[in-house]
């Protein structure tokens, strides 16, 4: 009864008072909130600008500051940085190649492990596994993906390295080596490759699979001749993202691949990667405006561009070469 009355009041109210003003009202509160939300969105832009500015500024300092050496004050130059094959900041030799080759070797080993295993896992999950098997196997990959990298580093140093030493002999392979770091890094990125490739595989429409079966192919033939070719762009994109992740990975290489730059492509040797160098130099209280301090920014900038370019290529491949069905 009471409810009935309320409704009546609401219903009759407009006719007795002024007609409702239905024009858009200025709502200062909403505008303030809107500006706040925009600023939140803009934080990400500030972050990127901050990264580029900070890395750029300090890198420029690296090449404009005069550092003292045995033959008096000396200035470093960019060409030496990009082409030099010796990294010894204490005698003002800063060629990035020893660090870069170590990064490339560990990343190559990692991808060499992660691509077949990740792709195989993706194919199994998307084409072969029963729903029950999926429910058991998928969490395994998720757990692998959730383990912190420092734990992988521990695994590399205390398990994989002794294992490799047992297999290859302690003379061939030392306590610190790129192979062990690369293998463990590969295990770390299996979930990334698997989940991205699986997304690409399951995006291939069912009709194509049925057509392949209709022509009498086995499941393997259907997978390799129809599904994988149709999903190539996604798989390649996953591969490139995996490389990018491996290049930027720090803790595994900092723990297992050795301290000290070494210009070599032999994975059984110890060598320091770009990220490993940054981690080692910045451990403890690094003093500002020194060659060491400035050098980590220059390496960081190189690293930033390498990963940015790889990520962009990956996105471009996905967008450009995606086979759109229906």
């Amino acid at each position: 009864m009471e409810q009935q009355q309320t409704i009546n009041i609401l219903y009759t109210a407009p006719s007795e008072s002024e007609p409702l003003d239905l024009r858009r009202k200025a709502r200062p509160g909403e505008i303030v909130v809107r500006i706040f939300l925009f600023l939140c969105g803009f934080v990400s832009i500030f972050t990127t600008l901050g990264i580029v500015f900070v890395l750029g500024e300090e890198s420029i300092l690296l090449f404009t500051t005069e550092y003292s050496s045995i033959d008096g004050l000396k200035r470093l130059n960019v060409i030496d940085f990009l082409t030099g094959t010796r990294w010894q900041p204490n005698i003002l030799e800063i060629g990035i190649w020893p660090l870069l080759t170590a990064t490339l070797v560990t990343s190559f080993v990692a991808v060499f492990i992660a691509l077949p295993l990740g792709l195989g896992a993706a194919i199994y999950l998307s084409e072969y596994a029963t729903p029950r098997a999926r429910n058991i196997l998928k969490p395994v990959l998720e757990v692998l993906a959730g383990i912190p990298t420092v734990v992988y580093g521990y695994f590399a140093l205390t398990f994989v390295t002794p294992l490799l030493q047992g297999l290859l002999g302690k003379n061939t392979i030392g306590v610190y080596n790129m192979l062990s770091a690369g293998i463990v890094m590969g295990i770390m990125i299996i979930p990334l490759v698997a989940s991205l490739s699986e997304d690409a595989l399951s995006a291939v429409p069912r009709t194509l699979r049925e057509a392949a079966y209709g022509l009498g192919s086995t499941r393997f033939e259907m997978t390799t001749r129809v599904v994988i070719p149709a999903a190539t762009s996604g798989i390649v994109a996953a591969l490139i993202l995996a490389i990018s992740r491996a290049v930027g990975e720090t803790m595994i290489v900092a723990i297992a691949s050795g301290n000290g730059p070494n210009f070599t492509i032999n994975p059984t040797k110890a060598a320091e990667t770009m990220t490993g160098y940054i981690a080692r130099i910045s451990t403890g209280d690094l003093s500002y405006n020194t060659l060491d301090y400035n050098s980590i920014f220059a390496i960081g900038l190189t690293l930033f561009f390498i990963t940015l370019i790889l990520n962009m290529i990956s996105r471009y491949i996905v967008n450009r070469f995606r086979e759109a069905y229906e």
Partner: peptide
């Protein structure tokens, strides 16, 4: 669109780069 693109790019930046940014800023 730039904000959106930028966010997905930031998600792919290696964590150590954030460390360097934090050190400087």
């Amino acid at each position: 669109r730039i904000i959106q693109l930028n966010i997905s790019n930031l998600a792919g930046v290696p964590s150590i780069i954030y460390g360097i940014l934090g050190l400087a800023v």
